[in-house]
């Protein structure tokens, strides 16, 4: 997995979610809650995993309980941690 900066992660996540979920860029605030602010639900979470797996070329669903991610910031943090772990494993 290629190491990415926080800003790159934020940009990729936002672009992927805006495109897939027909969201507006002004909605993409770190504190935005997926359910109350972005209007997504548990079934959208399934689609979100697929979209992010495609965007980052990594398997997400077996590595984290997606239900614990409530806000965009949680998601950025999770992806960033995943990237750091992968970088450490690769040496």
């Amino acid at each position: 997995m290629e190491k990415k900066t926080r800003d790159e992660i934020v940009q990729i996540v936002n672009e992927a979610l805006i495109k897939e979920f027909e969201l507006k860029s002004e909605q993409m605030k770190p504190e935005a809650n997926f359910f109350t602010d972005l209007g997504l639900d548990s079934l959208d979470a399934v689609d979100m995993v697929i979209v992010l797996e495609q965007a980052f070329k990594v398997k997400l669903r077996t590595k984290y309980e997606i239900g614990k991610i409530m806000t965009l910031k949680d998601l950025y943090d999770y992806i960033e941690n995943l990237m750091s772990e992968a970088a450490q494993q690769n040496g």
């Binding site: 897939e20 979920f21 027909e22 079934l43 959208d44 399934v46 689609d47 697929i50």
Partner: peptide
């Protein structure tokens, strides 16, 4: 769409297709 959309058609979720 998961919810009523009125005159504008909304995003299709993947559940039915999965």
């Amino acid at each position: 769409e998961g919810t009523r959309s009125g005159t504008e058609i909304g995003r299709f979720r993947s559940l039915a297709f999965k």
